[in-house]
Computed example of a mutant assay.
Amino acid sequence: MSRTPSLTSDPSDPSTQIPTPVEDQDRICTELHALYCFDVLIAHLEGREPMEPPFENKNEKYALFVTWNTSSNLRPNRKPALRGCIGNFSPMKLAEGLREYALISALEDHRFSPIKANELPHLSCHVSLLTPMTPISSPLDWTPGIHGIHITFPHPDHTGNRTLSATYLPEICPEQGWTKEETILSAIQKAGYKYKVSVGDEVWNSLTVKVYGSEKASVTWDEYKSWSEKALKGVKN
C-alpha cells in the first residue's frame, strides 16, 4: 500500500499543506478496503450478496476513488493497463461508497467495456481515499506523484454556464510518464474538450485547478483469492 506524503506544493504557503501521515497503524485506507471491492464485484457477477465490510471505519466518510487495472497485457517494460476508474469528491460512508463505486468503476466507465468474469484473474483493485482539495494559483504549481489534480473551466464554444471538469489521481502522472504540462492537457481532453489547447492560450488561462492528496491501498486477484478462502474457512469453523 502506498501513502501520500504531505501536500506541499509551496512550503512557504500553509494553505497548500495537509498534515503528514504518521504510523502504519493510523492508516485510514488498507488492503481490506480493496479486498471488499473485489468481493462486491464478484458478488455482482455471481448474483449473490457481498460480504459484510471487513474494516472498522465503515461508517466514516471520505471522498474516494476505485480503480481497476489489468495485467494481462504485461510485457517487459510495460505497465498495468487501466480498466476503469471512477469516484466521488463528496465524502461518503466508506461501506456504501466502496460498494457503489466498485461496481460503477468496473461496469460504467464509458472509456471501457464492462468488466467480465473471465477477466478477474488478471485484475488488481486500488482504493484511494482523498484529502480535501486546495486551490493553486498556477496550473503547474503541483508535484507529480504527491498531488492529484482537479481542473474546471468554462467551455469556450458554448454560451451559458456549461463547465467542464476532470481529475487525475496523484499516481497517474508518473505512471504514464507525463510532464505536468502533458497531464493538464490530457485532463482538458478527458473533461470533454477535444480541440487543441496550448500552454498559455485562452483555455489554459481559464483553468481553475485544485490539488489533493490520497491514501491508497491495492490488492491483486491472487491476494483476494487467498484472503477469501481463509475468511470462508474461518466462517465454517
Rank of each mutant, 00 (worst) to 15 (best):
M92I: 13
Y195A: 14
T179K: 06
T16L: 12
L82V: 08
I104E: 09
L103E: 13
L64P: 08
Q17P: 00
L41C: 05
H122S: 15
L94F: 01
L169E: 02
I86M: 14
H110M: 09
E175Q: 12
Y101R: 06
Y212S: 07
Q25R: 11
S218A: 10
L123T: 09
S218Y: 02
A217Y: 01
G148K: 05
I115Q: 02
P121D: 09
K194E: 07
S71R: 12
F65L: 08
D39T: 01
S165W: 03
L164K: 01
V22E: 11
F55K: 04
S206F: 04
T70K: 11
W221C: 02
K216E: 13
P139I: 01
P139L: 11
V203Q: 05
G200D: 13
V211C: 11
K190D: 02
A34P: 11
P19D: 09
L32F: 01
T8W: 00
F55D: 01
Y195Q: 14
S2Y: 13
Q189K: 15
Y224I: 03
L129Q: 04
E23H: 14
S228H: 14
E52M: 10
F38S: 03
A63C: 03
N69G: 03
W142G: 01
M92K: 07
S218T: 13
S71E: 04
P135C: 04
T220C: 04
V219M: 11
E46V: 02
D222M: 07
H126M: 13
L74R: 05
Y62V: 08
E31D: 15
G192K: 10
L185E: 03
F55C: 04
P132D: 12
P19R: 03
L107Q: 15
S138D: 15
I115L: 15
L103W: 09
P132R: 02
I136C: 01
E119C: 03
T131W: 01
P5L: 06
C173H: 01
P135L: 09
G84H: 09
S137K: 15
S113M: 14
P80L: 06
Q189N: 05
H44G: 11
A231Y: 14
R99P: 01
L7S: 07
M133A: 14
L185R: 05
V235T: 03
C37A: 12
S186C: 08
L140I: 08
D109C: 12
D26R: 08
S72K: 15
L98V: 07
A191Y: 04
G192P: 06
Q176G: 03
P139K: 10
L45I: 09
G84T: 10
F55E: 04
A43R: 11
L169I: 11
F55T: 03
P11F: 09
S6W: 00
E175N: 09
M133H: 07
I115R: 08
K194P: 00
P80E: 13
T143A: 00
V219F: 05
P53M: 03
I18N: 08
T70S: 14
V219Y: 06
T20N: 12
H33A: 05
E108K: 15
K79P: 00
R111I: 05
K230G: 00
V22D: 14
L130Y: 04
I184T: 06
K194D: 10
F55H: 04
V209H: 02
G177Y: 03
C85V: 06
K93Q: 13
W221E: 09
L74D: 02
W68H: 11
H110P: 15
I86V: 12
P21F: 04
